[in-house]
C-alpha cells in the first residue's frame, strides 16, 4: 500500500453510500466523471479522512512504444483486483467490486441478491444467483407495467421495506455472459423511488421448455431462500436475519421452474392481485 501511495495520483473521489465510505483515486486527470457513473445511485461526497476501502486505478499511458502491451491496473487497498489492456473491462471490475463491498459492509441496509420490481404498491423479489434468469424476468415484468427497482440487489431497511438499487439492467445477450446495459426508461418503464413493503418472493430458475407451475413455500422456507441470497449473512447474521424476519412478515412465497419469461410474468404479477390472500404474521 505504501508503494501505491508513492505513485503520485492525479485526482480522487471520496464516496459515501448506504453508510459505507470508499475512495477512488486515479493516475490521470479526466476520469472522475466516468467513474462517478459506476457508483451506486444516490452517493454523496464523504468527508472522512480515511476510507474503509480505497481503490487505486493506474491508467496506462498512451505514448509508450509500439509492440508493448499497455495495461490498466486496479487495486483495492493493496491488492490487485484487475489488470487489462481494455480500460472498460477494468472499470467493470471496479463497478462490481464497489457494489459488492457496499452490499457486504453497509451498516444501514441488508442486501439480497435479487431482481426487484414494484407492483400495486408492493415489491416483488426474484432472488437468485447469476445466470438464473433474474434480469430477463425483470425485463418482462417491466414490459407488463411493473416499476423497476433493481436487477441486482434488493436493499432492505430495518423496517423490512425494500429500497431501489437502480443501476441499468445488465442484459446478457449471448453465451459469453457479456452484458449490455439498458436503463429502465430506455426499455419503456419507470424507475421506483419510494421504499416498498414486500408483496411476493418468486424463487425460480430458467429451464428451456418448462411450464410455470409454482408451488407455494412456507414463510420459514421462503426466509431460508432469502438467507441463501444475502450478501452479508456470514459477517452480520443477527442483523440480516432480523431484517429478513421483518421483510417476510406479510409476503407470499412461491418456487418453481420457468420456461420463457413471457409465459410466467403475468402469473407472477397476479400473485399481488387484490383477490389473492395476503398472509399475516
Amino acid at each position: 500500500m505504501k508503494k501505491l501511495d508513492r505513485l503520485g495520483w492525479a485526482e480522487g473521489i471520496r464516496v459515501y453510500t448506504y453508510g459505507v465510505h470508499t475512495g477512488v483515486r486515479v493516475s490521470t486527470v479526466g476520469m472522475l466523471s466516468q467513474i462517478s457513473r459506476l457508483l451506486p445511485a444516490g452517493w454523496k461526497n464523504s468527508r472522512r479522512a480515511t476510507m474503509q476501502r480505497l481503490y487505486s486505478l493506474v491508467v496506462a499511458e498512451s505514448n509508450r512504444r509500439a509492440g508493448v502491451k499497455r495495461m490498466h491496473i486496479l487495486y483495492a487497498d493493496g491488492e490487485r483486483i484487475a489488470r487489462d489492456t481494455e480500460l472498460d473491462q477494468v472499470l467493470a471490475t471496479l463497478e462490481t467490486d464497489i457494489h459488492r463491498y457496499v452490499a457486504q459492509t453497509s451498516p444501514h441496509m441488508t442486501f439480497l441478491h435479487a431482481g426487484v420490481v414494484g407492483w400495486r404498491g408492493r415489491a416483488i423479489l426474484l432472488p437468485g444467483r447469476s445466470l438464473s434468469g433474474k434480469t430477463t424476468l425483470v425485463r418482462e415484468l417491466l414490459r407488463l407495467g411493473a416499476t423497476y427497482y433493481s436487477d441486482e440487489f434488493a436493499v432492505v431497511d430495518d423496517s423490512g421495506k425494500v429500497h431501489p438499487f437502480p443501476r441499468p439492467l445488465g442484459i446478457r445477450e449471448d453465451s459469453t455472459y457479456a452484458q449490455t446495459n439498458y436503463t429502465a426508461e430506455k426499455l419503456g418503464a419507470t424507475s421506483g423511488v419510494k421504499p416498498l413493503p414486500l408483496g411476493a418472493v418468486v424463487i425460480c430458475k430458467y429451464k428451456a421448455g418448462a411450464q410455470w407451475k409454482p408451488a407455494p413455500l412456507s414463510r420459514g422456507q421462503g426466509a431460508l431462500e432469502l438467507m441463501a441470497n444475502s450478501i452479508a449473512v456470514r459477517s452480520e447474521p443477527d442483523q440480516t436475519l432480523g431484517r429478513i424476519q421483518k421483510l417476510a412478515s406479510r409476503a407470499v412465497f412461491v418456487k418453481g421452474v420457468r420456461g420463457e419469461a413471457s409465459e410466467s410474468a403475468a402469473s407472477i404479477l397476479n400473485l399481488l392481485s387484490p383477490g389473492k390472500r395476503q398472509e399475516k404474521v
Partner: peptide, 9 residues
C-alpha cells in the same frame, strides 16, 4: 453477487 463474463478480468 453477480459474476463476471468471459473475457472480463
Amino acid at each position: 453477487a453477480s459474476c463476471r463474463a468471459n473475457g472480463q478480468p
